[in-house]
């Protein structure tokens, strides 16, 4: 399975994690994170529309993955990210990391998420009954990169 996938189709995070965990030879730890389509504060989110820059997205994710593998000595790492129209509660994306000991797998997963947030060309738009609005980037997400 390709370790970096960008797709419109839904995915089964349990099945993905099991498939990942069974192919990581030599690892003693597997960590995963999944992002879920969150409702807006007013509770009337109808859909989340995710746009991306096909071509650049794959390149950016492959670079982020390679950097995480090298920095934390990971045995393996995977990134899966959806685009298109998602319903509240739908899984948006997931990352999984494997390493000999847990600290590197945890750190690697956090690193992947921090970079994915503000360096992978995805843009989210929240669609509610009152209209549609682009999600603004948060300063904290940009600041999070400085810790690496």
């Amino acid at each position: 399975m390709d370790p970096v996938r960008v797709q419109e189709a839904p995915f089964d995070m349990g099945a993905e994690l099991n498939a990942f965990a069974t192919t990581v030879g030599g690892a003693g730890a597997v960590v995963s994170f999944s992002g879920i389509t969150r409702d807006v504060a007013s509770g009337d989110l109808q859909a989340m529309e995710i746009e991306h820059y096909a071509g650049m997205t794959e390149k950016a994710l492959e670079r982020i993955r390679a950097e995480a593998m090298a920095r934390f000595g990971l045995t393996d790492a995977m990134i899966l990210h959806r685009y298109g129209r998602l319903a509240p509660g739908d899984p948006i994306m997931m990352v999984a990391t494997a390493s000999r000991h847990r600290a590197d797998a945890f750190a690697g997963a956090e690193f992947l998420m921090d970079y994915l947030k503000s360096r992978a060309p995805f843009w989210k738009k929240e669609v509610t009954r009152s209209g549609a609005e682009w999600v603004a980037a948060r300063d904290e997400d940009e600041d999070a990169l400085s810790r690496w």
């Binding site: 503000s118 360096r119 992978a120």
Partner: peptide, 29 residues
């Protein structure tokens, strides 16, 4: 901005570029 699918600063050289992209700060994850 991105030049040929790489994120760049605004002073980046584009004299040999094929494609330049403009977009708001990214909101992945």
């Amino acid at each position: 901005a991105a030049v040929d699918e790489d994120l760049v600063e605004f002073d980046a050289d584009i004299s040999r570029a094929r494609e330049v992209a403009f977009f708001p700060p990214m909101t992945g994850g």
